[in-house]
């Protein structure tokens, strides 16, 4: 029923997620946290995965890393990393990829570093988990990685404990850990949400630079459209476990196809529209336990009609532009 977005640009994608389904089999019922998610990321490019909290974007990230905890389980779809399906890989094979070829950065830097272990311990163990090198060599790599993310006097910093760092510094350390093995893919789960705006800008610039330099494909999960606008090459918008729209970032932001994307763009405060009331999306995110049949957004959608009770297909409305809507917006939004 759903077409897979074909890679428009030349060169095979580093990561291709096809119709991914990750469900939580709870006593209260099946929670379809991720239900038909598809996107591709190419080397050196950034994909912005956007959605409200609870839309399944974090679970998508954890699915790629194979870190979905029970009762959650990947029940369908493929996660193709350089053509290899990660969803079918053994735990041990997956572990060898994690932190090595595929790395992850978490949301809250205050919680991601172990409080009782020194920074050097936490970095060196990551080096040694995937490379047969001496401790000295591992320490050298850790030091280099810290320098790479702009941490001054890395030698001294290596001997510190996480609590001696600020939030922004901790996130830099986490990014340095993710970079240790020059991974092909980094999944960043709202890594700047918990930080100050100025720090956020620095980290974003850093991330963009590093990706371009090393050719890492970056999946940047966020609820913040303005971050995506400045950082990403492509965007995938998630709603209630499904990707509802997908395409190059300028095109999607300038001319969204899906009413939800339009609503998201409308609710971002902008300088150009100062004085006008902010547009809101009416209503609430539906409970993931009993999603309505058909389009999950239809209760909040101004364009909803009887046909929306049927599940809408994920179709290519324009070249490289996919949307899950039967009556997409054809007109551009005034910016």
């Amino acid at each position: 029923m759903s077409a897979v977005p074909a890679s428009a640009a030349p060169g095979a994608p580093t990561l291709e997620v096809r119709n991914l389904r990750t469900h939580f089999l709870t006593r209260a019922g099946v929670v379809k946290a991720v239900d038909d998610v598809s996107f591709t990321v190419r080397s050196g490019k950034v994909l912005g995965l956007v959605g409200e909290s609870g839309s399944g974007k974090s679970v998508t990230g954890f699915s790629i890393l194979g870190l979905v905890d029970p009762p959650g389980r990947i029940v369908g779809g493929q996660i193709l990393f350089k053509g290899q399906d990660l969803a079918t890989l053994s735990e041990e094979a997956m572990r060898k990829l994690r932190g090595n070829r595929i790395a992850m950065i978490f949301q809250d830097p205050m919680m991601t570093l172990n409080p009782v272990l020194r920074i050097d311990t936490q970095m060196i163990e990551t080096v040694l988990a995937h490379a047969r090198v001496s401790r000295e060599e591992a320490r050298q790599r850790a030091r280099d990685a810290l320098g790479q993310v702009g941490i001054a006097s890395p030698d001294e910093r290596l001997r510190s404990y996480p609590h001696q760092f600020s939030g922004g510094m901790r996130q830099r350390v986490a990014i340095a850990i993710a970079l240790l093995h020059k991974p092909d893919v980094i999944v960043a789960d709202e890594p700047t949400t918990a930080l100050d705006v100025t720090i956020q800008g620095q980290i974003l610039a850093e991330a963009q630079k590093l990706c371009a330099q090393t050719g890492t494909a970056l999946v940047w999960i966020t609820h913040d459209l303005s971050v995506v606008a400045g950082l990403a090459d492509d965007i995938a918008v998630m709603y209630a476990g499904k990707v509802v729209e997908n395409g190059p970032v300028e095109q999607v932001l300038d001319a969204p196809l899906h009413p939800y994307t339009l609503g998201l763009i409308g609710s971002v405060p902008s300088r150009n529209r100062r004085g006008e009331p902010l547009r809101q999306i009416p209503g609430m995110t539906p409970s993931m336990l009993n999603l309505p049949a058909g389009c999950a957004f239809r209760a909040r959608c101004p364009r909803a009609e009887a046909r929306c009770a049927e599940p809408p297909p994920f179709a290519e409305y324009r070249p490289g532009r996919f949307a899950r809507c039967i009556h997409p917006h054809e007109e551009a939004v005034a910016a």
Binding site: K96, G99, Q107
Partner: peptide, 13 residues
Amino acid sequence: MDYVKFARAKGLS
């Protein structure tokens, strides 16, 4: 805790 999940994300045994 997140740091345990992060440790798993680092590919530790």
